[in-house]
Computed example of a mutant assay.
Amino acid sequence: MTEEIFGPVATFQTFEGEEKAMALAAHPTYGLAAGLFTRDVSRALCLSRRLEAGTVWINRYGRSRDHILPTGGWKASGLGGEAYLANRRSKSVLIDL
């Protein structure tokens, strides 16, 4: 949970409660992408707002073929960086229902 890994790689972590999940997901340096898997899409949307990541996938993981979506990470990931974040902060949320 503390390394930025380019894959395909999947990591799984168990937790009890949303606050613990958010603490595990919070990285001080990186924020390229995140994925949530749940039956409760409403809950996932609330959590996706709190995740500091440039892309959040819900019940899926992987890039979309829609090239109009903004890409780039938050913090020091992707096209992130403090200067970039000072001017623009975008997030794409993609959901499979």
Score class of each variant (00 low, 15 high):
L85V: 02
A44T: 02
A53I: 09
A86S: 14
N59M: 09
Y61I: 13
F12N: 04
V56D: 02
A21Q: 02
M22T: 02
G81V: 08
R43P: 04
R65C: 10
A21F: 00
S48C: 04
G80A: 03
A10V: 12
G17A: 12
L36W: 01
T71N: 10
R63I: 10
A23D: 00
P28G: 13
L51T: 05
K20L: 02
K91F: 06
L69G: 05
E19S: 15
E16L: 14
T2M: 12
R60F: 00
I58L: 10
R89H: 09
P70T: 04
R63H: 10
G78E: 01
E3R: 15
G17P: 07
F37K: 11
A21G: 05
L97F: 01
G35C: 12
R65S: 11
T29N: 08
L32R: 11
H67F: 13
Q13N: 12
V9K: 03
I68A: 15
E18D: 12
L97Q: 07
G72C: 06
L85I: 01
Y61N: 05
V41R: 06
I68H: 12
A21I: 05
E52D: 09
L32G: 12
H67V: 15
L32I: 03
F12I: 08
V41C: 03
A86M: 12
G54T: 04
Y84D: 01
G72W: 06
A44F: 04
H27D: 13
K20H: 06
G35A: 14
V41A: 03
E52C: 13
T14K: 14
I95L: 11
T55N: 12
L85W: 00
G17W: 09
N87I: 04
L97A: 09
A25L: 12
G62Q: 09
P70G: 06
G80K: 08
A44G: 11
A86R: 14
A10H: 04
A53W: 04
L94H: 02
L69K: 10
G31M: 13
A23T: 03
L24V: 07
P28W: 04
A83G: 03
K20R: 07
G7M: 10
R88T: 06
M1C: 09
F6T: 02
L94Q: 06
E52M: 14
D40Q: 02
G35M: 08
S48Q: 03
Y84A: 15
A44R: 07
P8F: 08
G72E: 01
A76N: 07
R65W: 05
L51N: 03
A44P: 05
C46I: 05
T55E: 08
S42T: 08
G7T: 13
G54Q: 06
I68F: 13
F6M: 05
